[in-house]
């Protein structure tokens, strides 16, 4: 899949947040968006996924050359897009397993043996160092910040998107967990040739991944682009001079 964002402008309640972003993510590519708080990174991620309260005032989003601007949220997921939420929603009473099984069924329309499904969940949970007991609980209910992030990555593994947008996958994680999550994402990306768009404030998670495209976003715009060297520059100078 090829994801193209062309001169995208996004508003919330008539206030423009994203002010003309253009970006292309191809299969197998790892892109990173960095930027200060309030620069529009999360709004961009949600707009790509089709958040109903965001208004695209101009520009467009294409998946394999086809506009998805007016496509429903679930249809975008069916195309192969996945958004890892910065603040995953808690839904008490909705079992994580059942939710994952329903989502997998909606995306693939394939009958998967329950045993195979469970085996995949168990092995991925182990890889992510997720406690077994979390799997049997309600979706994100009572989970710690780190556990929620890991469950998001677990969902990504099960749903197998073509392009995943990870919105701060490292926030709320301790040092060891950052490594575990980053390694798991990196492994999946390589195995499935998945396109990745990672939003982060920190360079630590990128130590375990191999980003080739770095985009610095400020005030709703991409103000600087480059390779991995940009990360070091931001680490030293911050975003003020970007």
């Amino acid at each position: 899949m090829k994801l193209e964002i062309k001169d995208l402008h996004v508003s919330v309640d008539d206030k423009e947040i994203v002010k003309g972003v253009s970006l292309t993510v191809n299969e197998g590519e790892l892109h990173v968006i960095m930027g200060p708080n309030g620069s529009g990174k999360t709004t961009l991620a949600k707009a790509i996924m089709g958040h109903p309260q965001l208004k695209i005032t101009s520009g467009d989003i294409f998946a394999d050359g086809k506009s998805i601007k007016n496509m429903k949220v679930n249809e975008r997921a069916k195309l192969g897009l996945f958004l890892q939420f910065q603040n995953p929603i808690e839904i008490e009473g909705l079992g994580l397993l059942n939710f994952l099984n329903s989502a997998r069924g909606a995306l693939t329309n394939e009958a998967l043996q329950y045993k195979d499904f469970m085996n995949e969940i168990k092995s991925t949970s182990k890889e992510l160092a997720l406690k077994d007991e979390l799997i049997g609980r309600s979706l994100n209910h009572g989970f710690s910040g780190g556990e929620k992030k890991k469950v998001e990555i677990l969902q990504m593994h099960i749903l197998k998107p073509k392009i995943a947008i990870l919105d701060e996958p490292d926030s709320g994680l301790d040092i060891d967990a950052v490594k575990v999550v980053a390694s798991s994402v990196d492994k999946m990306q390589k195995e499935r040739n998945m396109g990745l768009l990672v939003i982060t404030h920190y360079s630590r998670i990128l130590e375990y991944m191999e980003p080739k495209f770095i985009h610095i976003m400020k005030d709703g715009k991409i103000v600087k682009e480059g390779g991995k060297e940009l990360i070091n520059e931001i680490e030293k100078k911050g975003y003020a001079d970007a």
């Binding site: 996924m49 679930n74 958004l83 909606a106």
Partner: peptide, 11 residues
């Protein structure tokens, strides 16, 4: 609803 739909489930 956005969260659930983002996993491919209809509204």
């Amino acid at each position: 609803l956005f969260y659930i739909s983002s996993r491919g489930i209809e509204d």
